[in-house]
């Protein structure tokens, strides 16, 4: 790594005195490969990949983990996290994960899906996998559009939001209403932990990591399906800078998709918050 850019700090403490292994507080987890991510600058996918990799490493389940990648920008997730992966057809990740989890009861199986994948073409698969209470974790990245294909309208696109296929904004008379699919899933008795998080601030990332940790633990304890929605940005699709996209998300997405836990119980019970 390049150290030339840093200069002397104030007092007698030289920068080289700080950069010692015993002072290390944060570094890239070893589960993330050295392959540079293909995501656009500032994309939320990178952060969610990172916290998943950190958790799998910290919980010591690397050998048992199987991820099911979606169709979408995260289709290349297998290049970045050093665990077993399976690629599924568009929207069918929960069905593929069901098969993997049933034949490998000791494995930690998770799907990683976007909103076009999970809430649109895969709506049936996700509903039935959650209703069956499969012991899988579903990580749902909700950025309000189809990011990979050029920013078309998704079921989660906000009312009035301009996308490639709604150049005058989403019209609810014509296109229907933005779907809060996580709220629907929280109604299903097969789910154990359903929550909505965001990763636009450092605090949000830490909270999301705690939620994902709980979700992974629930899957390991065979409590049923855990579902973690991450409200995310697609700054390229939204035509904003990464920082402006984070601000736009906070002002527009989070009021419609409020953060917090929606259900915290075990499968078969209906105790919703």
């Amino acid at each position: 790594m390049e150290l030339k850019e840093v200069t002397k700090t104030e007092g007698t403490m030289d920068i080289q005195d700080i950069l010692k292994p015993e002072n290390l507080v944060y570094q890239k987890t070893k589960l993330l490969t050295d392959t540079p991510m293909h995501y656009c600058p500032g994309c939320s996918h990178g952060v969610v990949h990172k916290i998943l990799a950190e958790l799998i490493d910290e919980m010591g389940i690397q050998e048992r983990s199987v991820g099911v990648a979606p169709v979408g920008c995260a289709v290349f997730a297998y290049n970045y996290i050093d665990i077993d992966w399976q690629e599924a057809a568009h929207g069918r990740a929960p069905a593929v994960a069901t098969g993997i989890a049933r034949v490998n009861p000791d494995a930690f199986v998770f799907t990683y899906q976007g909103d076009g994948d999970l809430a649109s073409i895969g709506a049936a698969e996700i509903m039935h996998a959650c209703n069956r209470g499969e012991n899988i974790l579903v990580v749902f990245i909700n950025n309000g559009i189809y990011g990979m294909t050029g920013g078309q309208m998704a079921p989660t696109t906000l009312e009035g939001m301009v996308t490639a296929t709604t150049p005058y904004g989403r019209n609810t008379d014509l296109n229907g209403y933005p779907m809060r699919i996580t709220n629907l899933i929280a109604q299903l008795p097969g789910t154990s932990y359903v929550t909505r998080q965001a990763v636009h601030t450092a605090g949000g990332v830490r909270k999301c990591k705690r939620a994902l940790k709980k979700a992974i633990q629930n899957v390991l304890d065979k409590k049923g399906t855990s579902f973690v929605e991450v409200v995310s940005t697609c700054n390229s699709g939204w035509k904003l800078s990464p920082v402006a996209a984070n601000k736009w998300m906070e002002e527009n997405m989070i009021p419609y998709y409020p953060l917090g836990d929606m259900k915290d119980s075990v499968k078969g019970e209906h105790s919703e918050n």
């Binding site: 700080i18 002072n23 290390l24 570094q27 939320s44 996918h45 952060v47 990172k50």
Partner: peptide
């Protein structure tokens, strides 16, 4: 480091 999507920041503290 926590918010970096490409995990290219290493942090030291003393």
């Amino acid at each position: 480091g926590v918010v970096c999507p490409d995990t290219c920041i290493t942090v030291y503290r003393t």
